[in-house]
Amino acid sequence: MVVEYERRGAVAVVTMNRPEYRNAQNSAMTYALDEAFYRAAEDDGVAVIVLAGAGPHFSAGHDIGTPERDADATFPRRAGMWWDHVGKAGAESRFARESEVYLGMCRRWREIPKPMIASVQGACVAGGLMLAWVCDLIVASDDAFFADPVVRMGIPGVEYFAHPWVMPPRVAKEFLYTGDRMPASRAYELGWVNRVVARGALEEETLALAERIAAMPRMGLALTKKAVNQAEDLQGMHAGMDAVFGLHHLAHAHNAETGGDPLGGQDARSMREAPHGS
């Protein structure tokens, strides 16, 4: 299974399970995550959701080249009413697909009325950031690092463009302009990682935090989450993401028109092997 689901008392642990591909997210994984989150949201016995990744890495991002990439497969759409991307051409296909499986899914998951904690180790890159950022809290191991290198593709960041709300704008610009890796210690200093723990203690520390939160009243947690999310949206987060999503697709279209490749000639290997800071 590309996603595993386990109940641990009042905590649902949802684990991405493609460790051989650093948990790169194909569509099968995205929709399996959606099913797992629905299951946890509907279970009255679940108070907190933990999102984790099997193996040495949380997630290397969206699947742009594994043998099991399934971008042309049909799945039941749940994040929006836009038509299916399968069989469509050009921007009509890309916009429909990314509206559903990237921006649409992430926005829905952000609104799950139960606290969500990302448990991050190793790589949390590009599409991996989107999964961590929809969670309310992030617990990272001391070997974790974060990066959004998609400017190398000529694209202004991932589809769920939370960067200016997660970190100060000048830091966000450097993060994007360079594509460098940000260590967990730096993310903690900037306030978008809640805790940094030893790699061997990551699971234990994350579950301890989840169990502590699970003891709080359910309605109080749900309303508190909604209150903070509304404050972010009043600061322009929702509208800002819509605007950047348009720029994101302008970049795809520009790449396709000038070079025949919406990813600007990049693939999983070239993105992984590009120079990076530390």
Rank of each mutant, 00 (worst) to 15 (best):
G240D: 01
R77Q: 09
V134W: 12
D267A: 05
R78M: 03
N23I: 01
S27F: 12
A12P: 10
F175I: 07
H163S: 13
E203A: 04
R110T: 12
D70H: 05
V48E: 00
G240E: 03
M271G: 09
R195M: 06
R152S: 09
V3C: 03
S93N: 02
A187F: 14
N229C: 04
N26F: 06
N26C: 08
G157E: 10
A198T: 09
P168N: 07
P183T: 06
Y38N: 09
N229L: 15
K88P: 01
R39K: 15
A79T: 04
G220V: 07
D34Y: 11
G154I: 08
I117D: 04
Q266R: 14
Q235Y: 11
A256Q: 15
H163P: 02
G259H: 11
P275H: 12
D44W: 02
D142R: 10
A268T: 05
S93T: 05
R94K: 03
Q25H: 04
K226I: 09
A172I: 08
A210Y: 02
G90D: 00
P56K: 06
N17S: 02
A54K: 08
R94F: 14
D43F: 08
D44C: 02
P217F: 11
G61C: 09
Y102D: 06
L234N: 14
L33V: 08
S141M: 05
E35L: 13
H254T: 15
M130D: 05
A126S: 15
E189M: 12
G65P: 05
L247Q: 12
E98A: 11
L103E: 05
R107H: 10
A210P: 01
G65Y: 07
Q121R: 15
D84W: 11
R186Q: 15
G128Q: 02
A222P: 10
I49Y: 00
V101A: 02
V158W: 03
L129A: 00
L129V: 01
K225M: 04
L33W: 04
A210G: 00
A96E: 04
V166Q: 13
M271Y: 08
I112H: 07
R218K: 15
D43G: 10
G128N: 04
G90H: 05
S119T: 07
E20P: 03
R78C: 02
M153N: 10
A214K: 02
I138N: 01
K226A: 15
M16S: 07
A198S: 13
Y38V: 13
V48D: 00
T206D: 02
Y160I: 01
V46C: 12
L221W: 01
A10K: 10
